[in-house]
């Protein structure tokens, strides 16, 4: 084998392999959750509670087996959050429902009856926005 060709055959593939390996790493998530101090008294109205129960509570409660969902948002702990954290979570609920990110698509594929109806989505978003507006004004 000629030297130049040998260099090509050995080094280019080696370099390519390094780059391909680098991209092969994917993202992992891990960690612990932190508990903010309890503060305000939020009362979730019944119609909203029913929506949560049907479409969200299964994943977002303290006893849930879905660790990622638990870490991010606990419906049973929502009323105990500090005002600041509560505003953030309420806005996050609005965002997730607006973008159709919650409930997750994969979950809806298995349980289509848990999907939010357009009316439920609207009610949930309006409640979240109004409640967070109110907290911001106080």
């Amino acid at each position: 084998m000629k030297k130049s060709k040998k260099v090509f055959v050995i080094w280019l593939p080696a370099l390519s392999a390094i780059f391909i390996l680098l991209t092969a790493f994917s993202y992992f998530g891990s960690g612990t959750s932190n508990t903010p101090p309890p503060d305000d008294n939020l009362v979730i109205p019944e119609n909203i509670n029913n929506i949560f129960d049907k479409s969200c509570f299964g994943c977002h409660n303290t006893e849930s087996k879905n660790d990622k969902a638990k870490e991010k948002f606990l419906i049973d702990k929502l009323p105990g959050l500090s005002k600041v954290k509560m505003v953030s979570k309420l806005d996050k609920i609005n965002e997730m429902v607006e973008k159709n990110e919650m409930p997750p698509e994969k979950f809806l594929a298995k349980f289509p009856d848990k999907a939010l109806t357009p009316e439920e989505a609207k009610a949930l978003r309006e409640w979240a926005v109004a409640t967070s507006d109110l907290l911001l004004k106080k």
């Binding site: 790493f25 993202y27 992992f28 600041v84 953030s88 806005d91 996050k92 911001l136």
Partner: peptide
């Protein structure tokens, strides 16, 4: 104001739970 609050909450969570910076970035 709302987006600031939401984003600060996300920063607090993402950094506290080691979701950010992205793992692949830390590698390099």
């Amino acid at each position: 104001k709302k987006d600031k609050l939401k984003t600060l909450d996300e920063i607090s969570e993402m950094v506290g739970e080691e979701e950010m910076p992205l793992k692949i970035y830390i590698l390099m």
